[in-house]
Design a protein around this nucleic acid. Structure first.
Lengths: 206, 206
DNA sequence: CCCGCAATCGGACATAGTGTCCGATATAAT
DNA sequence: ATTATATCGGACACTATGTCCGATTGCGGG
């Protein structure tokens, strides 16, 4: 039986490798051109598989999109986790969070665009896709909420409803990412992170 | 000649009326379901014209989309202009701007979603569509910039690079709109406007 | 009323892409 | 060699887009 099992493992490894190739290609092309304008033929060809094989791995374009989002989500989680352990102060954690998000964006500009264009997929009734997006949103929101509450308890942040504060902070980060994703000449990241973090902390008023 | 001219005017009026009908329907359906998932057949049927007639008025789906954006832009300009004349103080103007944007969003929730999903059309190489979006962005940015500069000169806002301040303010507003567009139970508008404006002014720090 | 003109309609057509299906092929294990 | 499994490649049915064009409709003028 051991050889049999080893063979299944190898098949699984090969299959996962192939599947990941398709996801990588799809992520890039979807990010560049949107979720609906890239023919499955093209994704298959670039991934080096037959088009019908793509449908063996993914039931539909939507499911492929969902897989792309999941991969993105996993990477985001890793990035944020790594940043998070490095900082303890709430304001530094805030900075880390912004940094992590912008880092993922810059590492793969198509990253955010994929999330952005995926809003359309949600609008189109892609419930499964929507739930993957919601998970990403919840992860980030929880991090924001935690750091906000900690900031208040340390007397660094002014007191507001935590949910509202979380929403407002998230809005700024989301907006910053949106703008940066479309910017042909974005600021150096460290500078952009400082700027957004500063603005979040201090606002406009003198 | 006068009667001849009058007839041409009537034809123009009828044609514009029909064209606007198509735009209205398309705006709604695009906003609800995205720019690519609504068949032109359906838009035509709901607007009460033949599908081939839609192509008489608009060369393509993209051109129809562009017309939708232009209509949206015109309405936004009217809303902002009306709000703008009512307030002079920079912080009140800021509030008016946020209010105006959220008002347009609430008046037609599909409004913002249309702009959001149109980001995808831009990604897809819709240059003409992109330029319409850019015009909207420039309008809003100019308003933000003006009020920011005035706020600094009055000693109400702290001094930063005006372009960066404009970008940061714009990001928050954009994020607020994005979140609100997807919210099934959004805050009452006045409350949301106050909250965003307050956050813009004061930030997080105590 | 009739006629001419312009706009619109309705349908056919070619094309592109999606998802399904299946026989042929390739590969690995026994 | 045989068997089992995964993949390939292509055919198919269907949907939607944009183009084209003859038929129909509506309006204005004589």
């Amino acid at each position: 039986m051991p050889a049999r099992r080893s063979s299944d493992d190898l098949k699984g490894v090969i299959r996962d490798f192939r599947r990941d190739q398709v996801i990588e290609v799809a992520r890039r092309l979807f990010g560049e051109r949107g979720t609906t304008e890239v023919p499955m033929d093209e994704i298959a060809a670039e991934a080096g598989v037959a088009r019908s094989t793509v449908y063996v791995y993914f039931a539909s374009r939507d499911e492929l999109l969902r897989a792309c989002l999941k991969q993105m989500h996993d990477q985001l989680r890793e990035t944020i986790a790594a940043q998070w352990e490095r900082d303890v102060e709430p304001d530094r954690r805030l900075r880390s969070l912004v940094d992590g998000m912008l880092e993922r964006l810059d590492d793969n500009p198509a990253f955010f665009r994929l999330a952005l264009v995926t809003q359309e997929a949600v609008t189109q009734g892609g419930a499964a896709v929507g739930s993957e997006l919601a998970l990403i949103g919840l992860d980030v929101a929880r991090l924001i909420s935690d750091l906000y509450v900690e900031g208040v308890s340390r007397g660094m942040f002014r007191s507001m409803d935590p949910d509202r504060a979380t929403a407002l902070i998230g809005q700024q980060i989301y907006g910053a990412m949106s703008v940066r994703a479309g910017d042909v000449a974005p600021l150096p990241r460290a500078e952009a992170v400082d700027e957004v973090t500063d603005f979040l902390l201090r606002g406009l008023a003198v």
